[in-house]
Design a protein around this nucleic acid. Sequence first.
DNA 1: TTCCGCAAAGATAATAATTCTTATTTAGTA
DNA 2: TACTAAATAAGAATTATTATCTTTGCGGAA
Lengths: 140, 140
Amino acid sequence: MTTFFREKLQERGLKVTPQRVAIYEAIVKLNNHPTAENVIEYIKVNHPNISVGTVYKVLDSLVENELLKKVKTEKDIMRYDAVLSNHHHLYCAETDRIEDYEDEKLNKLINEYFIKNKIKNFNVTDIKLQITGKFKNNKK
Amino acid sequence: MTTFFREKLQERGLKVTPQRVAIYEAIVKLNNHPTAENVIEYIKVNHPNISVGTVYKVLDSLVENELLKKVKTEKDIMRYDAVLSNHHHLYCAETDRIEDYEDEKLNKLINEYFIKNKIKNFNVTDIKLQITGKFKNNKK
DNA sequence: TTCCGCAAAGATAATAATTCTTATTTAGTA
DNA sequence: TACTAAATAAGAATTATTATCTTTGCGGAA
């Protein structure tokens, strides 16, 4: 399951350490775009000795090495996402819940739009939609 | 110039104070989506006695009263925007520069798309594009 | 004008998230 | 197995932000 992760680390010249694997697994399992704190809490159960600084450093380096993505919200706490495919986010400001939203048809529509309508003075590398609203079924 | 601002404050039952006016003007003039710190620095010149807490408090209440918007980037510092119309952001991760991007045609396209393709279990209230890339002419 | 009430501002302490520093440990390798 | 650079642990330090408490200043009633 973490084979992909291990390979990608090595590919990047990063050592495969238990802490890195644990942090990555935590993000995958805590699948509501956890904060650093959520990760620490989750990991402490099986890795009681992991250091807070390590979690932050590992998260940073995983983002830098494109194994995780940062997710921004209205709030000032950073959150993380292990889903790397080009996707958007549904965000509920009230409950702070974030859900991934994948929509190939929409991506195509937007890409085509920007091919026809270039933004002057700007080279686009990535387009993300932040869709704010409210989930209908408020099951946690 | 700040007539709109003064009226909106009164409309909301908020007092028109020199600090509020100064902070609002600072955001408008520092038009690269300044941080609270940028605002403080800028204001200190003409209002040397303004308190840091006041700036944060005023920024918060202006956001709450829809006179400013919060903008979040990859960095964890909050930034502010006085442009209230429905617009998107061009963001350069390298230089941290943010520019407003208004595009009515694009808004229409996206709105129409979501009318035809409802997201199940989610009521959309707002859609924002975060367009990441690089500015071509690197004039500051 | 003076006094009262209250919203706002000032000063500064407190908190929360994150970063930094240094010593120690570990993974990958020869 | 031993070596070395990279990674981790521990905790201090920093940074952005929020909270608390006091003081100020303005509008309206006496």
